Simulated scan of single mutants.
Amino acid sequence: MNSNSKGAGLPELFDALIRLVENKPERVKKGSKISLRIVALEAGKDPSIIRKDREIYAHLIEDIERYAAIQKEKSAKKNGQVAELKARIAKLRIESERFEDLWKAALARELFLIEQLDEYEQRWKKQTNVVDFVPSGSPLSH
């Protein structure tokens, strides 16, 4: 086909569209939004050729618009899922912080009780009528 004839490069444009749909472009950035301009650039063509001869490229334009809408819908769905996951992460982070606070409070309570127990043990040892049940050389004594 002559490159100057109307509809020249149509197969390349359809191939470019397919590569974009499959997210395997060769000339443009991966994840590019599907549009007339991007398809033309991916095919190595001037975007104005599609706009000039809309009748010749009508099926291509319809396909581009359809796949652009599908891509937009997928993107919106993905963005919704990302937002949902971010909200869930934030909720879990708050819950994690709450559990960490509870854990720290429990540790503080345990340390306080150990300190109090040690204080009482020291008092009891000062009393003459209190006898230690564990012999002083035993591995259980501390």
Rank of each mutant, 00 (worst) to 15 (best):
G7P: 00
G7F: 02
A8F: 01
L10K: 00
P11G: 03
P11C: 04
E12C: 01
D15E: 10
D15T: 04
R19I: 01
L20W: 00
L20R: 01
E22Y: 02
E22C: 03
E22F: 03
N23E: 05
K24H: 01
P25K: 01
E26T: 10
E26W: 02
E26A: 09
R27Q: 02
V28E: 03
K30M: 04
K30G: 06
S32Q: 06
S32K: 04
S32G: 13
K33M: 08
L36Y: 09
L36T: 10
R37W: 04
I38Y: 03
I38D: 02
V39Y: 00
V39L: 00
L41A: 04
E42A: 00
A43H: 00
G44S: 07
G44C: 03
K45V: 02
S48R: 14
S48M: 07
I49P: 00
K52A: 12
D53T: 01
R54N: 12
R54E: 11
A58K: 10
A58F: 07
L60I: 03
L60F: 05
E62K: 14
I64H: 04
I64N: 01
E65Y: 08
Y67W: 15
A69Y: 09
A69N: 10
I70M: 05
Q71S: 06
K72I: 11
K72D: 11
S75H: 09
K78D: 10
Q81K: 09
Q81N: 07
A83S: 08
K86S: 04
R88V: 02
R88T: 03
R88C: 01
R88F: 05
K91P: 04
K91N: 08
L92A: 08
R93K: 14
I94V: 10
E95D: 13
E95F: 06
S96T: 12
E97A: 13
E97M: 07
E97P: 03
E97G: 03
R98S: 07
F99L: 13
F99C: 07
D101T: 13
W103T: 12
K104P: 08
K104M: 12
K104R: 14
K104E: 15
L107I: 11
A108I: 08
E110Y: 11
E110N: 11
L111K: 15
F112V: 11
L113I: 15
L113D: 15
E115K: 13
Q116C: 12
Q116W: 05
L117E: 14
L117T: 12
Y120P: 05
Y120K: 13
E121A: 13
R123Y: 13
R123F: 08
W124L: 15
K125F: 09
K126E: 15
K126Q: 10
Q127I: 10
Q127K: 13
V131K: 14
V131T: 10
D132L: 08
D132E: 14
V134P: 04
P135D: 13
P135K: 07
P135C: 09
S136T: 04
S138K: 05
P139V: 13
